[in-house]
Design a binder for these strands. Structure first.
Length: 273
DNA sequence: GTCGATGTTATCAA
DNA sequence: TTTGATAACATCGA
């Protein structure tokens, strides 16, 4: 579910709802999602304030008073849910923190591919999950992007999905930006001309910004922290549109599977060179 | 009931 | 080094 626009939407929601609040109590349902042991988590979170909320790629970083960090990755189905009033835990809730004003933030994740981890301030310069990430797609310059892609011999689609290469793009937005830039998902990255890569860079910026404005794409279970749906799914031009007419030329959108992932594209607009 | 698909990524093998 | 297959898991729909 959550790619850069969804995670960014969640981060903005957290700023509105829990930033500055003090954690009063923690409830934990132990599972593989929680990377620290429950007692350690409780001991190191209770009584602290959330002093900043940031995003890096698809990761959410909550900074706590005292300097420790809470690192959250939502995996496929993770969700952070803000509640104004206390309520009993639901199925697939893994952790709930209650703040001193009685509001709550809980982490729910049916498939448990997500991660929830407390990182000591002394180690935060060296967080494996973050330091291996590539540049932010909304920050990288056109020239740097072109140069970076041209070093890659793999397919452009898998290059875009590779977080070490560029951080935050997932299967939905990769298909959407390739459609915008009229590039076939199986094109070799290093074979793409500078001109086409400039188009791709523009497509990435434009699409991600638009998606953030729309509050992300709600497919299946994605909701923002306040339970609102995004509406970028209504603007998808490629992803999930197999058999439907291309919005540019009317050709039927095709779906192929590459590296176990679906790829939706227009066979006419996105020709392989 | 069964099968295949789903937004992610760590890990292992080639 | 890079790339591709697999597994982690629950749910939904054909």
């Amino acid at each position: 579910m959550p790619e850069l626009p969804e995670v960014e939407t969640i981060v903005r929601g957290l700023k509105r709802t829990v930033l500055g609040k003090k954690i009063k109590t923690i409830k934990i349902v132990p599972s593989r999602v929680l990377q620290n042991n429950p007692r350690y988590l409780k001991r190191n979170l209770t009584g602290l304030k959330i002093v900043s909320v940031k995003r890096r790629g698809k990761n959410i970083i909550l900074q706590l008073s005292g300097g420790n960090l809470l690192l959250i990755h939502l995996g496929m189905t993770g969700n952070l849910i803000y509640l104004k009033r206390p309520a009993p835990l639901k199925k697939h809730d893994h952790l709930n923190m209650e703040f001193s004003d009685k509001s709550q933030l809980r982490y729910n994740d049916p498939r448990k591919f997500g991660k929830f981890k407390l990182v000591k301030s002394s180690r935060k310069e060296n967080i494996e999950d973050l330091k291996s990430l590539g540049p932010e797609p909304l920050e990288i310059t056109e020239n740097d992007f072109v140069r970076l892609v041209q070093t890659r011999r793999g397919r452009i689609k898998s290059t875009l999905l590779n977080q070490k290469f560029i951080a935050g793009i997932g299967n939905i937005y990769a298909d959407e930006v390739l459609f915008e830039a009229k590039i076939h998902p199986e094109e070799r990255a290093c074979n793409l001309s500078s001109n086409r890569l400039k188009k791709l860079h523009q497509a990435i910026q434009k699409t991600l910004k638009k998606a953030i404005k729309a509050g992300g794409s709600s497919i299946d279970n994605y909701l923002d922290v306040e339970g609102k749906q995004g509406f970028f799914q209504f603007y998808h031009k490629a992803y999930g549109r197999e058999g439907k007419p291309c919005l540019r030329c009317g050709t039927k959108i095709k779906r192929i599977v590459v590296n176990q992932r679906s790829n939706y594209f227009c066979p006419k607009c996105q020709r392989k060179m």
